[in-house]
């Protein structure tokens, strides 16, 4: 497990450097401090907390990671459902989503029952939810209500649960190193978010989709994903992959992550909000931070599962 210490020492070094740079920028900037800089400081502070939470989960191994992602799903689903149209008659379906579906999905991941956790939500929950709603008898906006909640489960629970599921993959020669695969995915996808932000701030000119997100530019995307792929390649020692394979997988994960962020922005734009919530200072809500991971996790999981096990 020496590799995991190397990774976390590296992370702490990066965070120290970030804190130092933003501290110097804040100190040298004209007063009052600009909102961009205040936001940057808040974001870096929040990164310290997030790295601490992930480290704590890693200390407890597989169960720690599963508990952490159960809580992340809870927070994400809460933010998502808040923005949907719910009626009084949806109450039991909603309670079931939080109290039954989330714990059961993660229990299935914990027991490594791939055959069931990969279909539990998209088959059984998707059939049970409209059935329950129909039994209740309220047909008003039926299709919209049901599909909104179904997609919420898909994003906030099903996709997110594929991150801890990486630990259950039995890759020959990689026994006992499942946590490192999770660390690799989180580091590259979140690293890509940060790098896209930095490249966008420095070189951003041409917006990709001004209607959806004014802050996403081609320069940020290409620079961010290119550098994040290099980051992934340089982290190959965490994984069973060769440097080239690690770089390609990181690139795919980061492109998925970009699409996840774009979709999340579209939902927020549709609902007239800037952030999903206010849980993580400087970043917004849990979904603002995990939107990229949500799209990247299942794709990364399946590629690794089919090509390496």
């Amino acid at each position: 497990m020496a590799d995991i210490y190397r990774l976390f020492i590296g992370l702490i070094a990066v965070l120290c450097a970030a804190s130092l740079v933003s501290g110097i920028l804040t100190w040298r900037s004209s007063k009052p401090t600009s909102s961009t800089l205040l936001n940057l400081n808040a974001r870096i502070r929040a990164w310290w907390v997030m790295v601490a939470a992930i480290s704590l989960a890693f200390v407890f191994g597989r169960s720690g990671v599963i508990i952490l992602f159960t809580l992340i799903s809870f927070a994400a689903l809460r933010e998502y459902v808040t923005l949907t149209h719910t009626r009084r008659s949806d109450h039991w379906v909603l309670i079931g989503m939080f109290l039954i579906v989330i714990p059961l999905q993660y229990y299935l991941v914990w027991t490594n029952w791939y055959g069931l956790y990969s279909i539990f939500i998209p088959v059984y929950c998707f059939l049970a939810m409209p059935a329950l709603a129909a039994l209740w008898g309220d047909t008003s906006r039926f299709l919209e209500r049901i599909s909104e909640q179904q997609w919420g489960l898909m994003l906030s629970v099903y996709c997110v649960s594929h991150v801890p599921a990486l630990v259950t993959l039995e890759i020959p020669g990689n026994e006992g190193r499942g946590l490192l695969l999770i660390a690799f995915l989180i580091a590259t996808v979140q690293g890509s978010d940060v790098l896209q932000y930095i490249f966008g701030k420095l070189f951003g000119r041409n917006r990709i989709s001004p209607n959806v997100s004014p802050s996403k530019t081609w320069e940020g995307l290409i620079g961010g994903i290119g550098s994040a792929s290099l980051l992934g390649a340089s982290l190959f020692w965490l994984t069973p992959f060769s440097p080239l394979e690690a770089g390609v997988l990181a690139g795919i994960a980061c492109i998925m992550g970009f699409l996840g962020g774009l979709v999340a922005s579209a939902i927020k734009r549709d609902r007239g909000v800037k952030d999903w919530g206010h849980m993580i200072e400087g970043h917004g809500g849990m979904l603002d931070r995990t939107d990229s991971l949500i799209f990247a996790a299942p794709v990364f999981f399946h590629i690794v599962r089919y090509a390496w096990t």
């Binding site: 809460r78 933010e79 808040t82 719910t86 009084r88 109450h91 939080f98 919530g277």
Partner: peptide, 18 residues
């Protein structure tokens, strides 16, 4: 804001919403 969705009239268990 939203409390009526968290705990509507006649319900005992709250749904977690912001």
């Amino acid at each position: 804001e939203n409390m009526s969705r968290v705990l509507p009239k006649g319900m005992l268990l709250p749904v977690p919403l912001l």
